[in-house]
Simulated scan of single mutants.
Amino acid sequence: MKMDANRRKTTKGRRRNFLFKMAATLCGKLLLRQGWLPVTHCVRHGSKAVTRHKKPMHFLKQKLLAVTEYIPPKPPVSKRRDPQVKPNQEESGLMVLLKREVQIIFQECEMIAVVHNSATNAENMLHLKHRLHKHGIAVRFFPNQVMRAFLAGSQYSNLEPLFLGPTVLLVSKEPKVKEMLQALRAVPQMVLMGACIDKNTLLSLQGVVNYSKLPSLATVQGQVVSGLSLQTSQTAAMLQHHPTHLTALLQQYLTQKGQEGTHAGSD
């Protein structure tokens, strides 16, 4: 009897579990089809136990670290030397000779251009000299100290800030600006900074470019002469127009009078 009772309990339990599973699956499918989701989800997380805590540093250790902290030394203040020659310092013979040569260049040349040399190799410099020599432009090298000493007390003192780093002078007795710019385009390492044109005109880079776009002196003189000749010819034609017109009218009047006299004599 006990065996039968146990079998009945187990069969009832199995049926109950089977019915619960079937109901759960059916309810889940129906609810998912209708788009219903449960409001809360049960998610189980593992416990995160903190096993280590950062201990505060002892005050003696803090004092020791503060005392032994590395303090880098301050960089020394660099004293810039004045590149100009001091008045109480005597100039060397070479410097006097170079200053005299620079003075002669500024007196004789109509174009003096300051070019910054940005690491141009010897081959490019040789080609540039050859191109400039075709147009009568020379390349001259002078130390910046000499140029500043000469420009400091002259009328060209505004050119003094251009002499920083390696510089080159392009000089010619005639202002051949267009030819110089064409030659410098082939060497991008040579950068034009400014120029002195016609001995009294100081120009920047943009001023030099604008000056190169101007027509030549011969072209301007031809345009002026042609304009003046045109005006004089027009004035002479206007002055001669009235006497010529009057003479033609008188001539026509005389011919008409002669024709009328012949007709009257024949009648």
Rank of each mutant, 00 (worst) to 15 (best):
1 M>W: 10
3 M>E: 14
11 T>E: 14
12 K>Q: 14
12 K>A: 13
15 R>G: 03
18 F>R: 10
27 C>S: 15
28 G>C: 11
32 L>C: 08
38 P>H: 00
39 V>K: 12
48 K>Q: 15
49 A>E: 12
51 T>Q: 09
64 L>N: 09
66 A>D: 14
68 T>D: 11
68 T>Y: 09
74 K>W: 02
75 P>D: 04
79 K>D: 02
80 R>I: 07
85 V>W: 06
91 E>D: 08
91 E>R: 09
95 M>V: 05
101 E>Y: 01
104 I>D: 13
109 C>D: 09
121 N>M: 03
121 N>Y: 04
129 K>N: 09
129 K>I: 04
131 R>A: 11
132 L>R: 02
133 H>N: 13
142 F>W: 00
142 F>P: 00
143 P>H: 05
145 Q>W: 01
145 Q>A: 15
153 G>Y: 03
156 Y>N: 09
159 L>Y: 00
161 P>I: 07
163 F>H: 03
165 G>Q: 03
173 K>F: 04
174 E>Y: 06
183 A>W: 01
184 L>H: 01
186 A>E: 12
190 M>S: 03
191 V>Q: 15
194 G>A: 07
196 C>W: 03
198 D>G: 03
199 K>V: 01
209 V>Q: 12
217 L>D: 10
217 L>E: 13
218 A>F: 02
218 A>S: 09
228 L>K: 07
230 L>R: 05
230 L>N: 04
230 L>G: 07
232 T>K: 08
239 L>G: 01
239 L>K: 08
243 P>V: 06
244 T>F: 05
246 L>V: 05
250 L>S: 03
252 Q>I: 01
256 Q>C: 07
257 K>L: 12
257 K>G: 03
258 G>I: 04
263 H>S: 13
263 H>C: 11
